[in-house]
Design a binder for these strands. Structure first.
Lengths: 127, 127
DNA sequence: CGGTATCCGACTGGATACTG
DNA sequence: CAGTATCCAGTCGGATACCG
């Protein structure tokens, strides 16, 4: 089982590096709704710095996942939207997000148990 | 569309943090074949330091994705294996890995194009 | 509005040495 | 064998200031 794919191959490492960073997935998911302008995006995300939004968008653009469109109007206007390629990525990413939500209780649980196991497991009553 | 899930929710952020690190996915995929001992794992992976393997395994164990079994024999022996929870994670992760492989040419392509667009796009013949 | 440039602290991860 | 401890370079990412 699980034969037939390499998770260690460069391709996987590559996409994992992109998708595993702090903001990329978030941006992708927000752009799933349609094109957005830079500052709209920034507001939608909420905790991101201008610098990181720029870097994240550049990364996604570079990988062909996002398309950047500049309208040379007087206050400049730039739209970002998912490319078709970017939209296909949406599916495995959504899978992962759904896994996260379904199994979150398990994970939390495991973490609590792990923590309990680490500490001397609660002095019983007396001491 | 894509309503009905939050990629920004804490659960997703959490699992993305785990899965997005440098080694976790690799470990998970290797353990898909069955239990392995520490040094077997280390050899299977190839580029990992002892420290990082330990940290990665602790992280996975903490989240209930991997089970650690110590046999108190004279040279100590420790087995690591996926928990049922860990095995369920294998699926979305595999999806992502397959996406990476299917679309790698596109990504590579986009990167090349991006690079070309960045530099003054090739002086034509004369200069 | 949509960036770029700079600075800097925090965290990541490799190398190495030591331990039960 | 399976770690732990320490050190240290490199990267990530936030804050801030400035620019077209």
């Amino acid at each position: 089982m699980t034969k037939g794919f390499d998770a260690d191959c460069p391709a996987t490492r590559e996409i994992l590096n992109r998708v595993g960073d702090k903001w990329s997935v978030l941006v992708i998911v927000i752009l799933a709704d349609g094109a957005k302008r830079f500052n709209d995006l920034k507001r939608s995300i909420g905790g991101i710095s201008q610098r990181m939004l720029t870097l994240t968008l550049r990364g996604l653009e570079q990988d062909g996942l996002v398309k950047r469109t500049v309208y040379p109007t007087v206050p400049p206007r730039v739209d970002y939207e998912l490319t078709p390629l970017g939209r296909t990525l949406l599916e495995p990413v959504t899978e992962l997000a759904m896994w996260a939500q379904r199994h979150r209780p398990n994970v939390q649980n495991a973490r609590a148990a792990f923590e309990r196991a680490a500490k001397p497991p609660v002095p019983r009553r007396g001491t």
